[in-house]
Design a protein around this nucleic acid. Sequence first.
DNA 1: GAACTATAGTATAATAAAAATAATAATTTA
DNA 2: TAAATTATTATTTTTATTATACTATAGTTC
Lengths: 230, 230
Amino acid sequence: MIFNETKTHEITVDVVIVTLKNDALQVLLVKRTNEPFKDKWAIPGGYVRLSENLDQAALRVLKERTNVDNIYLEQLYTFGDPLRHPNSRVITCAYFALVRAEDIQIVTTPELGWHKISDLPPLAFDHKEIIEYSMKRTRERLELCPVAYQLLNEKFTLTEMQRAYELIMRKKLDKRNFRKKALSTEGLIELDEYTKSSSKRPARLYTFENIKLNSKRAHFISKKKEKIKC
Amino acid sequence: MIFNETKTHEITVDVVIVTLKNDALQVLLVKRTNEPFKDKWAIPGGYVRLSENLDQAALRVLKERTNVDNIYLEQLYTFGDPLRHPNSRVITCAYFALVRAEDIQIVTTPELGWHKISDLPPLAFDHKEIIEYSMKRTRERLELCPVAYQLLNEKFTLTEMQRAYELIMRKKLDKRNFRKKALSTEGLIELDEYTKSSSKRPARLYTFENIKLNSKRAHFISKKKEKIKC
DNA sequence: GAACTATAGTATAATAAAAATAATAATTTA
DNA sequence: TAAATTATTATTTTTATTATACTATAGTTC
């Protein structure tokens, strides 16, 4: 590939939209209908408009695809390899979003749907790398604050919360220690409600007061077992 | 400002180059000679060439300005506010670099020089925000791995290392506890050499084996006292 | 050369946090 | 009503953090 150095770049945002569904972390993908990478799956994305900033562009893409807003959205990383797009020079600013399954009302079609992160179909461009990076970032975030609540329904049991943590951190957690730490999280509110439809002992429901998530007590996953690259 | 939505974006990289000099963290700035922001100071930056990726562009800028390579360089954040550049739509991918003062052989002029981060001159564009964000990121990094060694000379005393930590973390550290943790850092090598020219008791010199910096034992700043925004 | 000054270096106890363990309670199903 | 399943609570052990005070080694001063 020969580069004409006077040609301009194109800039897009791509949003890794993650939810918790059927006891698995799933990511929203669209099937490409055109070349390049026709029939491969891709993260939802779009061009950044000149009138909007990057966050606004990502929020717009998210809204277009899922009709949700006001959720956890974070700039992830900007990918700019000259060869990441086979036809032109496209730099993409990747975002990731954690959304509640119950908030999402998308109509899944053969061209749009949720895919288990542990079992992804063939992906277009460098989107596999982007998804992997977003999961790494989610793990790092979870060590700092309980972002996992973004994946849970408004009312949830501690077991559901623990399960979300286990899926993100990719390791089993001890139920008793998890509960002890979780209960000390600022912003966690114990409700006087219990699950009903379960076939076993009902579990107490909790909810989150969203305000206080930057508390220093808000994280409760030990960092020690994780090795983080410098 | 009225936007022509068909106009293209321009993409730059800006590199926050930080060093430790005269017992202070200092950042390399260039004085702008043209409008906009004539006579204000700016982070070194440049346009991303079509043939290079973002890391390469940042490394090139770093090399052009300081003639150093092979140092700690990390993508920071991409800033894309439509109004951040008054004349055109410039999206910048910010990087930050930690460099050793002894490695740098720049000729400081009235248009290029080091400035204390605690006492910055008037800055162009959103560069104040970018520098602040880079220091925040450095603090977060330091909690994960001893990147501060990037600021130290090849051979350093534990007191110098502690001082680098204190400047980055903006708090006093207890000498005994710091030394205990520092000595348990993987990759730290105790030398049979001591400082000489000091008029006081000589201090033992240490060095770092760069290889093992992703060790889980490599970080030794407690996270508890820091509040991190979600 | 004795006293002083400044920084380098060390040992240990108190406190707090994390990890590891077992037993009991509440519900549905067989 | 016994068995199965999930929810919930308490305690101990281990590890990490914090707090504390003293000794060591050089140069400097008198």
